[in-house]
Every structure is written in C-alpha cells, then in structure tokens.
Amino acid sequence: MITSVEEALLQARENMTPFFDAADGMRRDLEARGWSPAMAEQVAAKFLILIMTGGRS
C-alpha cells in the first residue's frame, strides 16, 4: 500500500520530469555548440534553479 507521503513524492517526481528534461536538453545543446561540459552543466543547473524558484534565486 502506498502512503500519502510516497504518493506525494511520486507525483512531485512526475511533475518535475519535464523541467529536468529541459535542463538536460539545454546542457546537451550547449555541449554540441562547443561549450565545455562543466560550463554547460553550470548553465543548465542555473536554468533549473530559476525554473524551480520562479526566477527568484
């Protein structure tokens, strides 16, 4: 039996998946354009933080 906490966590993960996918896509695109993996990761992480905080980081 799934508890309400487990259900809430599963729902949160499902709702956040598009954001993680967008950040991963951004990172891959930046790397394909010649950015270093470390810099692309930093930009994608900042993008993800801005999405999650509504632009208040």
Rank of each mutant, 00 (worst) to 15 (best):
M52F: 06
E6C: 06
T3S: 12
S57N: 00
R56M: 13
L30I: 09
S36N: 05
I2K: 10
A44L: 03
F47H: 03
F19Y: 15
V5I: 11
R56T: 14
M39L: 13
D21I: 09
P18A: 01
G55I: 05
L48R: 05
E14F: 10
D29L: 13
R27M: 12
P18K: 03
P18D: 07
A40R: 03
E41I: 01
M39A: 12
A32Y: 13
P18L: 04
R56A: 15
R13Q: 13
A44S: 08
M1G: 09
M39Y: 14
M52W: 00
D21C: 02
R28D: 12
M16S: 12
D24V: 11
F19H: 10
R13E: 13
R13G: 07
E41S: 13
R13A: 15
T3L: 00
G55Y: 10
M52A: 14
M1D: 08
D21R: 15
R27I: 00
I49T: 15
A12I: 03
L30H: 03
L30D: 03
F20C: 15
F47P: 01
L9W: 07
A23M: 07
Q42P: 08
I51V: 11
D21W: 10
I49M: 12
P37W: 00
M16T: 10
M39Q: 13
Q42K: 13
E14A: 09
M26I: 06
A38S: 13
A23H: 02
V5S: 07
E7C: 00
A44K: 02
A12G: 00
A40I: 04
E6S: 06
L9A: 11
I51T: 04
E6K: 12
N15F: 09
G54S: 09
V5W: 15
A40Q: 10
G34S: 02
T17G: 01
D24I: 09
A44W: 02
A23L: 06
S57W: 14
A23P: 02
L10R: 12
E14M: 14
A8E: 07
L9C: 10
N15E: 07
A12M: 05
K46A: 09
E31D: 00
A45E: 06
N15T: 11
Q11S: 11
A8T: 14
L30V: 07
E31P: 02
G34E: 04
A22Q: 04
M52H: 08
M39T: 14
G34R: 01
S36K: 13
A8K: 03
A32K: 13
A23I: 03
A38I: 06
E14N: 09
R33L: 06
L30R: 05
T3D: 11
S36Y: 01
T53N: 05
F47L: 05
A40G: 12
G54H: 02
I2R: 15
I2G: 01
K46T: 15
F47G: 00
F20H: 10
F19G: 06
R27A: 06
R56L: 12
G55M: 09
M1C: 02
V43P: 00
A32L: 07
I51H: 06
G25F: 01
I2S: 08
K46Q: 08
M39V: 01
I2Y: 04
L50P: 00
T53Y: 11
R28W: 05
M1R: 15
A45Q: 07
L10C: 10
D24P: 04
F19S: 11
T3R: 11
E7F: 08
A8Q: 09
E41N: 13
R27D: 02
R33H: 14
L50A: 12
E14C: 14
V5F: 11
N15H: 12
L48C: 03
W35F: 14
